[in-house]
Amino acid sequence: MAGMKMSAMRTAEAVAAIPMHHGLVLAAVLFALGLIGILVRRNLIFILMSIEIMLNAAGLAFVVAGARWEQADGQVMLIFILAVAAVEVSVGLALLLLLHRRFQTLDADAVSKMRG
């Protein structure tokens, strides 16, 4: 009991040693990388991966904020995001498989039949 408490305190000290804005900047960079990936890549698999990166960037921001105010809510939020991401990936991969079966391609721009 006492050991667990000690280790938790040590971790908190270690995290507290990293300034909060470092964590937030990292999250922002990751988010921007993901966004750029979505906009630049045409392959749908890469787009899906970029979305994962953006989700994880958001999750990182939550954890950093939770550490800063010493609240567990940030980590709870990350677990939610992971769950949502897993669901999203499964649905996304299923759509991807269907698209590949139908159009024989994974190019996002080629699949633009729903234009106005």
């Binding site: 966004l35 906009l39 045409r42 787009i47 996002a108 699949v111 633009s112 234009r115 106005g116």
Partner: peptide, 18 residues
């Protein structure tokens, strides 16, 4: 003008949202 924005290209939509 408005229907031109409806290109069907997902990446443009994402860019617009961003």
């Amino acid at each position: 003008a408005l229907s031109a924005t409806q290109s069907g290209q997902v990446r443009r939509y994402a860019a617009a949202i961003a």
